[in-house]
Design a protein around this nucleic acid. Structure first.
Lengths: 336, 336
DNA sequence: CTGAAAGCGCTTACAG
DNA sequence: CTGAAAGCGCTTACAG
């Protein structure tokens, strides 16, 4: 039932009466092979059921058809990375690529993959600028090995990421429609670009709708559930707002827990929105209005672009912001 | 800053005054090298900063240091697979292995990895016996390529999986303690071994506690949330139970939605438990009592065993059931 | 457009 | 215990 012997390029060469070199060219779609010859060889390949040995290919300087995907260490807390990976894999498989998965903490291992040219490219969720990453990117650039960031823009490297400004603006339009009068924004860590962009877009959107920004308050958190709880507590113990927008769903959950504890009714007294459409958000009571990140789209586009860079050896240097989508659930109610 | 030139086994051979063969033996911990020679070569390796090229190694018949991990197509619905993968990666990295991630739907691609000996081994969440998998396993067996199942036992192949019987039994003990009088079990698909094992363990545990099995009712579902909803509806429209145990959390959620709709109070009137400790379970209201699967432990043990099989070329043929853990939350209350 | 030959960096019988 | 040499299955200048 098994092929008794592994069939190699040598076999194809013999069968077709050509040289290994020509067979190799056909496999690699080299233009300078006479179409007839190519067709002939194709036939032999078909008949023999030949599949190029990718390891040999890699050793002699070719491609490995493997790419590495680096996710955050705590991706467990954001299972939407699964969507990213699934999308990447869908594209990868259709083009014959395989995915090596790595958490950020194993970046050393990624670096050794790069050094050994064990991968053809890399998709990485980069974080706040880190030296180790910067030097990796610089090295890859020098080696001509393509990579794409899905986290923050960094240097002049290509990236594909969610449009946080647009997402914040969408929430602002929705909040305006709901006619909220006083709004609290719970931010992420001070220097975190995602949170800042969301707020910037939110401000713009509110202004566009004639909202007086005097009535927008800011409380700072650090993305954790606890920080959302405490930010709410700090604010609501002295002031009031009829709507809260948290920079992520975990902090929104923290706020919700605070409101529950205090007997403040959501959404009747305070409406609440988060960001990320985290896994638990639709299961909360009330279910949480939030903004869904375009993870699948990011995965698809990142992988398609990466393959293009690998195969064309071109450097399109794409920089893309992909639109997020407002998901309206029960935690927001109109004040009209 | 970069090494100007890639340093190879040749360089080490020259530097140490030995042959490439001997260097190779040292790298591979071959016993028949004089310790002094080995030490000497080690030093050269250190000085030169030599790292064996794993691609060359693989081509000449050695190992690739890559293993494939196959997860279900819909692993997005069960993010605890992330824990499995993280655990596998932790072990893998410590031993210098890399993980190629694949969903079940791309099994063809896995097969080609096997055919090309692009991987040293495989960890797969196998499903109900499928022909394609069976033939893959048989082939790997013939090739002497190790693999470990984390789904169902199959043939005589090694596996590591959760102890569903023990988990079901734990729930029975807990339910007995809570003094429930009439219990509904919502099962998974008829032929699904996990659900059947959980029920078997549940029955045993109830009996051990003197519970009259006449008061245990069974409604069948198919693991989906909807089926949990409908199973509950069918049962409760004519009968009553003061506790429900669903074969997974998604069906428990379905039951909860039904109770909410009907105004039946959980846990006051009906207590509820699920299985899996799915991602949403702690966020439900009330939070769901359930059984947590030992995914990290499975990942760790599976990977450690796999590496042992790869490196010792031994076939320990491990078959392990790992204990699950009852997670008590708010959806169950004592009737005493 | 096509081929002969060298080379990618290892491992592994085969001798000794 | 150690080395010379062949070989793993490709790719890629170099010629023609």
């Amino acid at each position: 039932m098994e092929k008794p012997k592994k069939i190699t390029i040598e076999d194809v060469a013999k069968h077709s009466g050509c040289s290994k070199a020509t067979v190799s060219r056909v496999i690699n779609h080299d233009k300078r092979v006479r179409p007839e010859t190519a067709g002939h060889i194709m036939k032999s390949i078909d008949i023999l059921g030949y599949h190029p040995n990718t390891i040999a290919r890699a050793l002699s300087g070719g491609k490995t058809f493997e790419i590495a995907v680096v996710v955050p260490d705590n991706w467990k807390a954001q299972p939407y990375y699964i969507k990213l990976i699934d999308a990447i894999e869908d594209v990868a498989d259709s083009k014959g690529y395989h995915i090596i998965l790595k958490r950020r903490k194993y970046l050393d291992s990624v670096i050794s993959l790069v050094n050994q040219k064990r991968i053809d490219g890399l998709i990485i969720r980069n974080m706040q600028v880190a030296d180790q990453e910067e030097s990796l990117f610089a090295k890859m650039e020098r080696m001509g090995m393509p990579f794409i960031l899905t986290g923050q823009p960094q240097g002049d490297y290509p990236f594909v990421k969610p449009d946080n400004i647009g997402g914040g603006r969408d929430v602002a339009f929705y909040f305006s429609e709901m006619a909220y009068k006083k709004i609290l924004y719970i931010s992420g860590p001070k220097d975190h670009i995602d949170s800042n962009e969301r707020l910037a877009g939110f401000r713009v959107g509110l202004s566009e709708n004639g909202f007086d920004l005097q009535n927008l308050y800011i409380a700072s958190g650090d993305y954790s559930t606890e920080s959302g709880y405490h930010a709410s507590k700090r604010f609501f113990s002295s002031k009031f707002a009829d709507a809260v927008f948290a920079a992520n769903d975990r902090m929104a959950l923290g706020a919700l827990l605070y409101f529950r504890e205090k007997g403040i009714k959501v959404p009747e007294e305070v409406s609440l929105a988060g960001y990320d459409d985290n896994f638990f958000s639709e299961f909360l009571s009330p279910s949480l209005t939030t903004v869904k990140l375009p993870m699948s789209e990011i995965g698809t586009i990142a992988m398609e672009s990466l393959i293009r860079m690998i195969e064309n050896k071109s450097r399109p240097n794409i920089k893309m912001l992909l639109p997020s989508r407002l998901v309206k659930r029960d935690s927001c109610i109109s004040r009209l």
